[in-house]
Nucleic acid binder design. Structure first.
Length: 950
DNA sequence: CGGATCACG
DNA sequence: GACGTACGTGATCCGA
């Protein structure tokens, strides 16, 4: 081996870690074919710069790219959880992994990966080998694990280069970050752990403590050995308890420096880059500025002798499905979205053609375009259909606006199109796939079309992935998010087509070519999502909840939205006025007491008035540095004789009622129906509950007399009544069943007052006070109790609260076991389950962050109970109208759902007949799937307002 | 646009 | 080095 005349300098590029960082720092570019290439572009420019540094003083003479191969390494044999909790890479990054290899080949650079070895290990081994030969080495990465390698041996130096920050990393930088020299970095890492790689470290020891300990004792072993002699402290306990974790972690973070080297160092020599494959690559992905530079030779990259000839490129055809790589979630074989493949259907003949094809396929994705987000007000503008990837069309129906004299584009007349589509959309042998089908059902309903049968990708996603969102990755079920996550594709944004804010235009004004790209793409994406998600239902046990609970509910909830509920506008207006007068009066008094005018609605100003100006005691600032002025604080001040506090409380109540209810509800009345139509979200709450928006009719006041006046404004049509049916204590009943608490089950069976019974068990006697406390404790149990939380609510010391919890567990054996078993199961599986099989995911259940973890634990205790209750009322809703119809009660309308309550409107004459049916359907809603060991009680009332029906 | 507050189950 | 104590929602207002 001849000694080189000048010093050799090997650059080792940590390709895998680079691409993750580039992805997050660069905008989401796509190439001409629609493949996301933002990270690849960053990677390409980096290689360009490195290769161009060939003749620089400290530049590379040799260069190789090292990649991770696969997701399992020898470290998993040592520790099965290693890197186990890494979120899957973002979907628009996945197709870029194979392109990294393409880019490297385009530069004719060696690209090295070995199954079972991480890039870090290969880098370490190559670096040491080069160092032995007396070469300098630069590791192009910013991975802290690699900092262990830095330093100089026999004049051969290893350093790092962070190209993103354009920063050299050497001993001072390591010292600054870890407070120790490179050879001790591994020891620090072993103590502190690494949440991203799931290296445990020692629980409760962070970077600060870890580097302090290692710096002080000189090594991990010495630090651990020192523990027994330390004076008693949390740290001492943690060190003693965590010794094994730390030793395991040390093994995990130690780099393997003696890997077999698949390609000799000499072959990594860098020379001028041959322009040919590079030009082809740059042009394919639309990197035009680099292409221009290559052609003009300005700053052209260097090249190396061609030892790694590019192979024929197959992966590039699809950008996905290249199963060779860290691509752990291979995309299905679908061609990329191609907007030019879509058809604009402008004649009845073409429409008939598409309808015939859809019939033959028996499966079609459908999407409607309208004038409004409010499905009950929306007018139909067009319909899109998709039969398969890129096989989609858009049928414009009302483009050109409603100006009768304006020039309108050629389109099938609305009535002819509706007449042609109706038989297809109503055909029970053709499955219609929607994304959020409830919306389209309402739109079609207004056009006189009753859609069935349907599938809904949004609802399927919810059955599979509720709660699954993690840091940096959305967990929603909207089309754009699903497309990003599952297809790696960003659909055209609505705002790019219609604009936003004042300049926004109606979809009816969008030119047909833009409209077609947008609308047909939505149907296309929906069909693609369906193909991907539907098979997962059976693979991941989602079929039961989807088919038996959520899917049947879609048309039922759509119908409830269309029904709406009548509100008495005059009554609300009167209330608004009364509230306004009272608010004005209180405001004057508050200003008087404060000695100045200020914005009463500003918690910031109020806090300063109360605690700084007026000098009341006990002001507590939160982390925003602001005094808290919430009810509990103001109640306390009022009790301590601060007259202003009571007035502010009254002011707040009225201001809330006026702005959120009396004013807003009047504005929400649909002029066409004279009723208020809420929109329910089927995927809003992670537990499976519905949520209600625009307006929210699930939080109409009920707890105070003044608030209940608002309920009085919810009324039936003349000759009708409102009927409210609610489950009594359903969550406590379910808890008694699920935890198998005999005492509670017996009490429910006997129809006892459950809080009173709890009081008797807990305190020996039932008084107003003990019953109230028992009620609080019952709820605390459902929500995942902590002694401090309960102490705060009951205004007792944490010790006393703990004693009550102990008593509760003792009196109601089963509860503690339920909590323990639920948590164990969620920790192991990652999700909780309801009695009907609904999953809720808890990605933070094993978090190292205590607050985060405990939060997840409380939610996980509650989710099966709240979720089972939601399943039950949903089943009742799906059965309700058919059950009533069976009794000839076709004029009962189901209007609202408020978690454990259903509200109906019906002719007064029907109350007697309907009441037992409603009661039976609700009480038996769990059957036959689940046989509960407690009865479900249902309270029913009727009246001429929602308030009176209670 | 986030925080504070408060309406509901 | 800390931390923040009850589950699940949505609407409104203030103020940066």
């Amino acid at each position: 081996m001849a000694e080189p005349s000048t010093k050799q300098h090997l650059y080792l590029v940590d390709g895998s870690s680079y691409i993750f960082r580039a992805y997050h720092r660069l905008p989401p570019l796509t190439d001409p074919e629609g493949t996301p290439v933002g990270a690849v572009y960053g990677y390409t420019t980096m290689l360009w710069k490195l290769a161009a540094d060939l003749d620089e003083a400290d530049g590379p003479t040799h260069l190789a790219v090292i990649l991770d191969a696969g997701s399992v390494s020898f470290r998993n044999e040592i520790y099965e959880h290693y890197k186990a909790h890494r979120p899957d890479p973002p979907e628009d990054l996945v197709p870029q992994f194979p392109l990294i290899r393409d880019a490297t080949r385009a530069f004719s650079l060696p690209c090295i990966e070995v199954e079972g070895l991480e890039a870090d290990d290969l880098i370490a081994s190559y670096a040491r080998e080069a160092q032995r030969r007396g070469w300098d080495v630069t590791i192009v990465s910013s991975d802290k694990d690699l900092m262990q390698l830095l330093g100089e041996t026999d004049g051969a130096r290893i350093d790092m280069l962070d190209t993103m920050k354009n920063q050299r990393i050497y001993l001072p930088e390591v010292e600054e970050k870890f407070g120790v020299p490179p050879e001790l970095v591994g020891d620090v890492l072993a103590l502190m752990g690494d949440a991203v790689d799931n290296v445990p470290g020692i629980y409760g020891i962070g970077p600060k403590t870890a580097s302090k300990l290692i710096a002080e004792h000189g090594s991990l072993t010495a630090a651990l050995d020192s523990a027994p002699d330390m004076k008693p402290s949390k740290l001492k306990e943690r060190l003693l308890e965590g010794r094994e974790d730390a030793e395991l972690s040390k093994v995990l973070v130690t780099l393997k420096e003696d890997c077999d080297l698949p390609q000799p160092l000499d072959e990594m020599q860098l020379g001028p880059v041959p322009p040919e494959p590079l030009a082809a690559f740059l042009s394919k992905h639309g990197f035009t500025s680099l292409l221009k530079r290559l052609e003009t030779g300005t700053g052209s990259p260097a090249r190396k002798t061609d030892l790694n000839p590019p192979k024929p490129d197959k992966a590039g055809d699809n950008g996905a499905g290249d199963g060779t790589t860290a691509n752990r979630q291979p995309l299905p074989e679908m061609p990329r979205i191609d907007h030019s493949a879509y058809e604009t259907v402008q004649s009845i003949e073409r429409l008939e053609h598409w309808i015939a094809r859809a019939r033959a396929a028996r499966l079609v994705a459908v999407d409607t375009e309208t004038t409004s987000l409010d499905s009950v007000r929306a007018d139909l503008v067009g319909v899109s259909l998709a039969l398969g990837p890129n096989d989609a069309c858009y049928i414009p129906l009302a483009h050109g606006g409603d100006d009768m004299f304006a020039q309108k584009p050629e389109q099938v007349p609305m009535d002819r199109a509706i007449a042609a589509l109706k038989p297809l959309i109503e055909d029970d042998s053709v499955l219609k796939v929607f994304q959020n089908g409830k919306y389209d059902l309402n739109v079609f309903a207004r056009a006189g079309i009753a859609v069935a049968p349907i599938e809904d990708t949004m609802v399927i996603s919810f059955a599979l992935d509720a709660g699954r969102g993690e840091e940096g990755m959305g967990g929603g079920h909207g089309m754009d998010e699903l497309s990003e996550r599952h297809l790696g594709h960003t659909p055209i944004a609505f705002k790019d087509v219609c604009g936003t804010g004042k300049k926004a235009i109606s979809f009816a004004e969008v030119p047909l070519d833009d409209a077609t790209r947008y609308a047909a793409e939505d149907a296309d994406v929906t069909m693609r999502l369906y193909r991907l998600l539907k098979p997962r239902l059976s693979e991941e046990a989602g079929t039961r909840i989807y088919e038996r609970v959520d899917r049947p509910l879609i048309p039922v909830v759509a119908r409830m939205e269309r029904e709406g509920i009548k509100v008495d506008r005059a009554r609300l207006a009167r209330l608004s006025e009364e509230f306004a007068v009272e608010i004005g009066r209180l405001e004057g008094e508050i200003h008087e007491l404060a000695g100045q005018e200020f914005t009463v609605g500003s918690p910031k100003q109020l806090g300063e008035i109360l605690f700084d100006k007026l000098g009341y005691k006990g002001g507590k600032k939160g982390k925003s540095g602001q005094y808290s002025t919430d009810v509990s604080v103001l109640e306390r001040l009022a009790g301590e004789g601060a007259p202003i506090a009571r007035k502010v409380l009254d002011w707040r109540q009225l201001a809330k009622l006026k702005s959120t209810y009396t004013d807003a509800l009047q504005a929400a009345i649909n002029p066409a129906t004279g009723r208020v139509h809420t929109s329910y979200s089927l995927v809003g709450a992670q537990t499976g509950r519905l949520s209600s928006t625009d307006p929210n009719l699930q939080n109409i006041p009920v707890r105070t007399p003044i608030g209940r006046q608002i309920r009085e404004a919810f009324v039936p049509e003349a000759g009708n009544v409102l009927l409210a049916a609610d489950y009594s204590q359903i969550e406590l009943r379910l808890a008694a069943h699920m935890a198998g608490v005999d005492t509670l089950k017996e009490a429910f069976a006997a129809g006892e007052d459950i809080h009173a019974r709890t009081a008797k068990e807990m305190f020996g006697e039932v008084t107003r006070d003990t019953r109230a406390r028992a009620k609080t404790i019952n709820f605390a149990i459902l929500y995942g109790i902590s002694r401090w939380g309960l102490a705060g609510r009951l205004e007792v010391e944490p010790d006393e609260a703990q004693a009550m919890i102990d008593t509760y567990f003792q009196r109601f054996p089963g509860i503690q076991r339920y909590i323990h078993e639920t948590l164990e199961s969620v920790r192991a599986k990652g999700y909780s389950e309801t009695l009907f099989g609904r999953k809720t995911w808890f990605p933070r259940i094993n978090s190292k962050n205590q607050a985060e973890r405990q939060g997840s634990e409380r939610a996980a205790i509650n989710a099966p109970i709240q979720g089972t209750s939601a399943d039950i009322i949903k089943r009742a809703m799906a059965r309700m109208l058919p059950a009533l119809a069976d009794e000839g009660l076709t004029d009962v309308r189901m209007l609202l759902q408020v978690h454990d309550e259903l509200v109906f409107e019906l002719p007064e004459s029907r109350v007697e007949a309907a009441t037992p049916v409603i009661r039976r359907v609700m009480a038996e809603a769990a059957l036959p799937a689940v046989e509960l060991t407690v009865p479900l009680g249902v309270d029913i009332g009727t009246g001429l307002s929602w308030d009176a029906a209670h």
